[in-house]
Design a protein around this nucleic acid. Structure first.
Lengths: 184, 184
DNA sequence: ATATTGTACTCAATTTGTTGAGTATGTCAA
DNA sequence: TTGACATACTCAACAAATTGAGTACAATAT
């Protein structure tokens, strides 16, 4: 029944900490959740609709003046039970599908400068993401020695994001150095 | 016309080096291609069918005795043109969807040992993958100073895979250390 | 005065990815 | 000799993700 609903689990886990509207969830997904789960606005809204139908979350409409009404979602007991059931099952590593590396494999078809330029562009993107995550880390967790269990968990996901993005920057530098030797 | 056909591009890039049957492509995808693109057997066969219909690849049936016939695919001029057109366009970083980190966020719902066990299991998986990639690296590229441009590109994708998997091992160790402090 | 951005969502079409079954044969080990 | 594993594919159904459009109003910038 609840096999393969990974986005649903991510939403449930997020609502387990705090209640959010669909729009606020999307904003959170665009900032900190991003380092472990990316989802579009449309995906989030659709999943919220499904989860509410299933009874895993419940909503409350907050009328607002000047702005559209908000629908605030909270997790239900049933939702928590679904999360718990899922937690004890093993998870496989995410499937990697990285276009840049496919381009590296096909790079020989065009002048060297084409792939080099793209790798440099990507290096910048990842550098910026490292900075963004580091800033969130400092704001949310200024004192690493005084974290609650819950905070430690949240902290660790950010640490994973920083490691991931930093590794990309490092690889880009290695690639630029190795491929710059060519004149092609 | 050719927007969003990332698996197709990966297959074209692979056939750009050498011709393969669907089955051999799948085996290659399960070994070295894995570090930048994962695809199932079914996906590969379906995509090969589409690409042949489009004229991007062409096939030749090799009759075999004792075994089923093979269909060997090669890239066509049209396929190379598609690859070249795609190469000059920018690529965005892959979307991250990592279940383990979602579980870390929800970890507080269950005893600490549950998530710790899962992180340890994952650490092993990534360690093994590091070893597997390192072995391929040594076999295919024993002398890093004497690589052709094409080999350098292939080498770099493996280097990326090693970096990626190693980063996971490092993060797992950090997480285990931080979360082991709790008795919960 | 007009354009852009932000808030807060919905709907539909298409592509992509997953799951499971089915066909057919050969080798190797318990 | 039975069962597992490897070769070499096809078909169908479903779930997930992407893309693009549309609704509606407010605040802010040019």
């Amino acid at each position: 029944m609840f096999n393969e609903m990974a986005l649903a689990h991510t939403i449930l886990a997020t609502l387990g900490d705090e209640s959010y509207s669909g729009y606020d969830l999307w904003k959170k997904f665009s900032q900190s959740t991003k380092c472990y789960w990316q989802a579009s606005q449309q995906q989030i809204y659709r999943e919220l609709g499904k989860l509410e139908k299933q009874g895993a979350i419940a909503s409350e409409v907050i009328p607002q003046e000047g702005r559209p009404d908000k629908k605030i979602y909270r997790i239900t007991e049933q939702g928590i039970a679904i999360l718990k059931d899922w937690l004890v099952e093993p998870s496989e590593p995410m499937a990697i599908r990285e276009e840049l590396l496919v381009k590296v494999i096909a790079a020989k078809l065009l002048p060297n400068s084409v792939i080099l330029q793209e790798i440099k562009r990507r290096s910048q993107i990842h550098s910026q993401q490292v900075s963004a995550y580091k800033q969130i880390l400092q704001e949310k967790f200024p004192d690493v020695d005084k974290l609650s269990y819950e905070q430690k968990c949240s902290y660790l996901t950010l640490r994973c994001g920083i490691r991931y993005e930093s590794t990309w920057v490092d690889w880009c530098n290695e690639a630029i150095e190795l491929l710059s030797e060519e004149e092609k």
